[in-house]
Amino acid sequence: MAATVQSRPRKVSIRVDRPAARERRAVRRLLIGVSLAFLATFLFLPLAAIFAEALRGGTKAWIVGLADPAAWSAVKLTLLVASIAVPLNLVFGLAASWAIGKFDFIGRNLLLTLIDLPFAVSPVISGLVYVLLYGAHGWFGPWLQSENIQIIFAVPGIVLATIFVTFPFVAREVIPLMQEQGTEEEEAAITLGASGWQTFRRVTLPNVKWALLYGVILCNARAIGEFGAVSVVSGHIRGRTNTMPLHIEILYNEYNFAAAFAVSSVLALLALVTLAAKAAVERYSLRAPESAPADPILIASNLSEEPAL
């Protein structure tokens, strides 16, 4: 089981001055200017607009927008959904990475590809499939109705759709790392008499802690912010099945822009915290490059791996 995944130490900056492999100063400035202008129009202006619009009516209007009971129930539902979806996907991620990362078996690459599937599915379709399964006209619809269980247009459907869209995040961070680290340390622990559970807790888990944290950060951000999938299964019952992004949509469509942007500003702050946490984990894990998490996009693109065909 040769390690097929290479960890890439990121070269942060190239200090060596090599004039033959460099552009002229004017070209360099132009390219930097183009980059910054592009980011400004596409990224920074919209981000600034969220806070400007949220605070347009002063801090009082901002607080009023957030203090609404419907906003509160949206916050609570969002936190509830994330607190169910993230731990479930965390446990799955650990089980999958133990099986795939530490053992060599037939169908391993197929399993890896299947775990990636939700990345390739439109959020709207992620919601649709649950409607077709558990909705009133779905496979299990009549049975659920006779048992008086409601999944679609209720909280369980929102949780399921969120689990689907955040499904690969933890697994895809931890699997490549466990593969790369091999099994020697675990084998030594087992040989020295440790139980399987002790080995996992004391040897494996500390080795992958940064990648695990990284995956949880990404998973959590997506769980809190998911819109399309949740929108399809929620039914938009105000105060009952609205998450924060859905609440924003309702406020916005009612032309209550102040409140819509007030709630948005909270989510935008959360996104900035997510970016900061992500950068911090990247920095900390650089000190221990052995356990550095891989870039999620590289993972999503299978770039550092043998393709699973």
Binding site: L39, L43, F44, P46, L47, A49, I50, P123, L218, A221, I224, G225, E226, F227, G228, M244, P245, L246, I248, E249, Y252, A260, F261, S264, L267, A268, A271, L272, T274, L275, K278, P296
Partner: peptide, 16 residues
């Protein structure tokens, strides 16, 4: 900041 579109909920990006 390149990862902002990843971290920002899509509905928030949309109205922004």
């Amino acid at each position: 900041a390149i990862d902002l579109p990843f971290a920002l909920p899509t509905a928030v990006s949309g109205i922004a």
